[in-house]
Design a protein around this nucleic acid. Structure first.
Lengths: 180, 180
DNA sequence: TAGTGCATGTAATGCGTTACATGATTTC
DNA sequence: GAAATCATGTAACGCATTACATGCACTA
């Protein structure tokens, strides 16, 4: 009996249930405040994924309407819990990110030096906005997050700061070079 | 007349031709030594994309076999050149990376503290290997790269180093916490 | 009563990977 | 003579986004 491979998004669903999410809607809104920056998920994935995971016995759902409003709450089964834990502990793959803005920078030799430098500045501003957004989320009241949840949140903040510094440094360098 | 939207991968193809690549094979091997780390591309995308781009007038290809070996070299048209340049100069989107390993870390509260810490260590090692790979590529002889090509390469190296430091810092912190 | 938030889902389309299939040329 | 590299492509499948469609509950 082969174990079906699960997609990262399937693990997001399982993981969020593990951390206390109850409904599909729940999962989506938690994702939007947390993992979205390094792993997004849409309703178009979440609901069908919940159905598949239920079919395969990784989660169980029961109807729990609030008044006349349809609502289905899910829980991990032991099997589901085992699978997420297995995935979490498994060795990571080679880092491979997907950053369209970096791609633009890579090809910036195809435009004028001034436009290229401007792209670098825009990248910096993008990360400044990103940092602002994270700080706003951090400022919102809310219960204490689990250790690794806040660790990763902290990663986001530091990542943004590091990017801002990196951009500034190279903005200066390339501006000097232009003059020289 | 609406302008067809091009995918980031279409821009990779156009951009690589702009930087001197000639064939589909060429594009793939340059991608594998450069943008792969933040934007990969496979033959299954590159060849059909070249065909579409030719159909739409962004590139022109001509057959240029080497001996009996089939070979088609492509060039940007003015229109193609205009489109890449436009894309390169356009404002970037909100940063959004896709990092499965960060996802694992995010859910690490679902496993034991020891396993979670080990995941953090594995992340560090992953970035150490990544750094090693980049340094090896850097050490290989090869002509001078364009300014922004080497800028982005440098980004990769610094990104790896920053990640290693970040992991080390938090490994120490979480190890202390465990003792306390 | 209008707007926002809670809640569930589907359909169309497009993006991307993997595996497969083929064959010539160069280098060791 | 074998292995690596150059070279082109297709087919199947799965992943992900976007837009659409629906409707209840709460609050200003």
């Amino acid at each position: 009996m082969e174990e079906r491979e699960l997609s990262p998004t399937a693990y997001v669903v399982l993981g969020m249930l593990g951390l206390g999410a109850e409904t599909g809607y729940d999962i989506k809104s938690i994702v939007d405040r947390s993992t979205r920056f390094f792993w997004a998920a849409s309703y178009g994935q979440i609901y069908p994924e919940l159905a598949r995971l239920e079919r395969d016995g990784f989660v169980v759902g029961k109807l729990a309407p609030t008044g006349g409003r349809k609502r289905k709450v899910y829980e991990l089964t032991d099997e589901g819990r085992r699978r997420v834990a297995e995935w979490v502990a498994a060795p990571p793959r080679m880092p491979e990110l997907r950053d369209e803005n970096l791609l633009k920078l890579f090809f910036a030799d195809l435009v004028s030096h001034e436009e290229a430098l401007e792209q670098l500045r825009m990248r910096r501003r993008g990360h400044e906005d990103f940092l602002g957004m994270l700080e706003e989320i951090a400022a919102r009241p809310g219960g204490e997050d689990p250790v690794f949840v806040s660790l990763v949140f902290d990663y986001g903040i530091e990542y943004a700061r590091w990017n801002i510094e990196w951009c500034k440094r190279h903005e200066r360098r390339l501006a000097r070079r232009e003059a020289a």
